[in-house]
Amino acid sequence: MKSNWNLHFLNDKLRRGKVAVVALLVGLSLGFAGSQVVHSMNESSKEATKVPVHSDKDVAHERRFDFAFPPYMWGGGLLRDSIFRDFDDLGYFPASFENDWKIGSFVSTPRIDTSESAAELRITADVPGIDEKDLEVSVSDNLVTIKGEKKRDSSVSEKDSKKSERFYGTFARSLNLPCRVDSEKAEASLKNGVLTIVIPKSQLAQKECKKLTIRTQ
């Protein structure tokens, strides 16, 4: 009786194992197929590589940045981060807030340029030596985050290093946007180590861009 029970237990284990193996195989093949699709897409656009953009709509907590950084203050990495760091030392910000900005440690942030047209916002960032698969761009209504990892060249080993000036490791950086954007239409591309993100302004924001004429009395 006891041995029978044992057998039953073994059977059950085997079955579970099989299910796991099948699931693994399906997952792997899907993954490969997915990467193939992505690869072929990349090849069709030889000039610049597309980087997928995650659009997070209705992320309410991001707006908390606004009190410290009005929308006209684009970027401002060092200033912003050091202010936050000082507050952090005082234990000023709640823990949930920390998670938002701490990833953007300003030691390793990519340098950025921002420009603006009537209909679009444009961000360029220097990210030399980073593959598009190691880059993650996410856009919400009023915030852009660039995350990435710069890996060491696989052909070299650290022990042979004689001089090291370049940065390796992970980085992340968030930017407040000056207006509401259409996050789902945002596009990012990578070319020669420069990441370009183009985000169309929302219809409402474009309407708001109305200049007033100032009359003299």
């Binding site: 340029d113 921002t114 603006e116 679009e120 000056p178």
Partner: peptide, 9 residues
């Protein structure tokens, strides 16, 4: 059509 808003690099 673009104006530079902010430049770091």
């Amino acid at each position: 059509g673009y104006t530079l808003a902010y430049s770091e690099y």
